[in-house]
Write a protein that binds this DNA or RNA. Sequence first.
RNA 1: GCGCCCGUAGCUCAACGGUAGAGCAGUGGACUUUUAAUCCAUUGGUUGUAGGUUCGAAUCCUACCGGGCGCACCA
Length: 502
Amino acid sequence: MADRNDELFAGRAAKAARLRSLGIEPYPITTARSHTTAEAVSALEQAEAAGEAAGPEVAIAGRITALRDQGRLTFLDLRDGSGRIQVMLRANTLGAESYALLKQFDLGDFMRVTGTLIRTRTGEPTVQASSFSMLAKALQPPPEKYHGLTDVEQRYRRRYLDLIANDEVRRIFRVRSQVVAAMRRFLDGRGFIEVETPVLVAESGGAAARPFKTFFNALSEERSLRIATELHLKRLIVGGLDKVYEIGRIFRNEGISTKHNPEFTMLESYEAYADYRDVAEMVEQMVAGIALEVFGAMMLPYKGGSIDFTPPWQRRTMRELLIEHGGLDFEHFRSEEAMRAELRRRGIDAPAAAPWGKLLDEAWSTLVEPKLIQPVFVLDYPVELSPLAKQKPDDSSLVERFEAFAGGFEIANAYSELNDPLEQRRRFEEQLRQRDRGDDEAELVDEDFLFALEHGMPPTGGLGMGIDRLMMVLADQASIREVILFPQMRAERPHSAQGHDD
RNA sequence: GCGCCCGUAGCUCAACGGUAGAGCAGUGGACUUUUAAUCCAUUGGUUGUAGGUUCGAAUCCUACCGGGCGCACCA
């Protein structure tokens, strides 16, 4: 019972109690500060630029991340959301009684310091303290200061410790926020409006995926969590909103991998009077613009090489790339039997029940996808794989669809949206036949969506883009868990915080 | 679901089948310009869990729990 962590906890709790016994609240309300740590550093630089020896008086606050006790002189580092700054505390300027209170401060505690901005002998920007106080006592010890927290499970389960310990992790999630903000600015600037559509839906549609299911007590009905926003956003195009987008959480009841988290964030946009060529132009402008705005360049490092997002990106057909990278021309294997035999000959295994389109997809993801490092739009997919996309006018076996690839995997998917209600009904019915064959991810017939289409939907270009995957490519991360703050994991058996013993 | 690998102190890591150790953190002490501070001393372990093999198991075997990677599933 009395393990090590209990002792560390008890020691810190005792310090909090000692402060209280001295009439000092270890969790006070007041936090007033005049500068963030970053503002304090620049205030010092400005004063120096004006020829002054020292900066102004400041009040700063932050977490103690380093503590260097030298007897009657102590240095410590305070970190807040803006950065860090060194604090120097001297016994003779603070007085022996006040200085002695430092003994009750530990790594991880939050502290407020007032004092003058100076530079130490080594040139380090420093607050020379004239007073200090506790803002919040930490009862658990922080991770090791040099190596940080490296245990991957702990990093994901206790992301707060990961964020405390690892600068790079903090940077990635700041960048993620900037990427999403830049995306909104881009779309808003093009006249799109941001909308919100239901997460809880009666039937999940708009993508090939299994849903999570839940129960709506008040209505005594089943609900699914959405697997896409597509069918609702198209209803808004029917309604005349013309340019809509949603950045939202999507849920797919499927496996977890370095490229898959069961809940992930997707941008979907729909633009009336546009087709998939217009959408491609928008995507390359948007991604290149985000790269430039957030990272300051269109060429970004990736897995030891680099990716150049400068528009225009290459446009290639799926057939060309399959021939080029895999020596496979699907026109020679148009039947399911022929395609299956060809895959078997190449040692690519595919699910037994897979129809032709799935087999092709299998060949594609094995032979071509990993090689598409530089951004490329892959055009003209087989109609079998795309029940919501419009056929090409000159070849009804293909649809007006592209997928954008970068970094070796898909980052976006777009169509000239199918707006012929009768053809859409036939496609849904074909999906039903797939479902009867055992494909439980085939689309369900959404009668209200068809009813909406029957009222007329203008020609529309639609886009889906995985924000998490885009982040992986932009921030050069090999696992989707590195760009999701709290990735899904098996539930941990309860391991309680301390201090409420029973 | 399958395969491979991993699980040792709060954290980062050691330990030919033969007494579980180091650094950081903690505790006590020294130190008024340090910044992975330094120096002296020191506390801390049901080696993920449960079995098994063995004179002897952190180490070998089995099952389970948790995780990573790959495959499968899946955009």
